[in-house]
Write a protein that binds this DNA or RNA. Structure first.
Lengths: 209, 209
DNA sequence: ACCAGATTTGAACGGCCGGTCAAGTTGGGG
DNA sequence: CCCCAACTTGACCGGCCGTTCAAATCTGGT
């Protein structure tokens, strides 16, 4: 049988990116060494530089790759939901770090922060970040447009509303991921839903028993 | 015995912190070397380690120091304004990177991002960040309470409203400081004012004429 | 079985930089 | 004026880590 040995080039490439993303999440960009990634991927350090021309390039690619993965998973899940209002709720569910138990601490947000800090100085990363962010706003705007078409949401510039809601999520998520004692996942979730309901003009079913 | 030269020592200490903050803003935390700080402060590298026990300590202190400075300047300015609504507007003015020309690009936000990334792994920095953030929310909440007392704003939990507005500012500021082509300072300012007016229940004077 | 090219290894190199230190300089008190 | 402690310097050390490279191994084709 073919042992585990033969790996296509593409597999290796992705394996290393996966390993790098894991290491960055765990140790932080600044503390990530090539040998850490090699260990995580189960290969020798030399091989990393065989597939990536430099450590910097590897880390940059890993960051956008990981954010890509997150985005794809999210939009896959959301596409399944028929109601725009429920789509929005689920997007918020997924965006609140640690809100849905099955998703762990949702450390993707930590990677975002690493992207930001790197984008401040790395033009390529700045470009990638802008695209990633645009896509994020876009997916919110799409939900809003769908809700407006179906009458679930009131009128208003969908892109502008998406910017506001998306930015609110960003700002709150930072504090939640930092384990701020005042800003719990529940509180973040509630804040997002309330602002969204006011901005989009729908009533929040208050869970009164 | 007698205190030796507390004044000069204190000056040096602060000079170095200032220099470090400048270097971090310019080059980023990851790229900041002790010798860079020494150059910026006009002293020898050895002296840096005479005043700070390690590079890590220095950088941590510099980050909180710089954010402190920003906060103090902001609250000094805001205290002068009588109307709560104008206080809020000015707080937003100051928070939008590059909105007020006289304040340059307001790179303090870049330092915030560095704080975040460091706070993810450094418990002391995490603690400091939480205090800094609490103070930031608090100063917004104070404005809101004043406005509610004077009748300028509607009712509502001031702390909750402050969290929402503060987080929105955070999330938007990130994108502005990244030079996102879609999120201009003007657009951020407008978004903040609109959400604030809706959340706080006051009318936005639409600039006619 | 053999070859050629692709893949993989790990040892070794070299630069960089945080931290140390011994030697100087300064300035105020006696 | 001298002395001592505080302050300041810059050379130096040592380790770390990104990168290189020659050699080993593997793979598929003939």
């Amino acid at each position: 049988m073919t042992a585990v040995r033969p790996k296509s080039t593409k597999d290796r490439h992705q394996e290393i990116l996966d390993a790098a993303a894991r290491v960055i999440t765990e140790r932080g960009l600044a503390e990530t060494r090539i040998s850490d990634v090699a260990d995580a991927a189960g290969v020798s350090p030399g091989l990393i530089l065989y597939y990536f021309e430099s450590k910097d390039r590897l880390l940059s690619e890993a960051l956008t790759y990981a954010n890509d993965q997150f985005y794809l998973r999210m939009s896959r899940e959301i596409r399944r939901i028929p109601s725009a209002r429920e789509q929005l709720r689920h997007l918020i569910d997924l965006s609140v770090p640690g809100y849905l138990p099955e998703y762990g601490r949702l450390d993707e947000w930590a990677l975002w922060i690493e992207v930001w800090v790197r984008a401040l100085r790395d033009p390529q990363m700045a470009k990638d970040r802008e695209l990633l962010d645009q896509r994020w706003r876009q997916s919110i705007a799409d939900i809003i447009r769908a809700g407006q078409a179906s009458g679930e949401f009131g009128e208003g510039d969908a892109d502008e509303l998406a910017l506001r809601i998306g930015s609110l999520i960003d700002g709150l998520a930072i504090q939640v991921i930092m384990n701020d004692s005042q800003v719990t996942p529940q509180r973040m979730h509630r804040a997002c839903m309330e602002v969204a309901s006011r901005e989009l003009g729908f009533a929040l079913e208050t869970a009164g028993a």
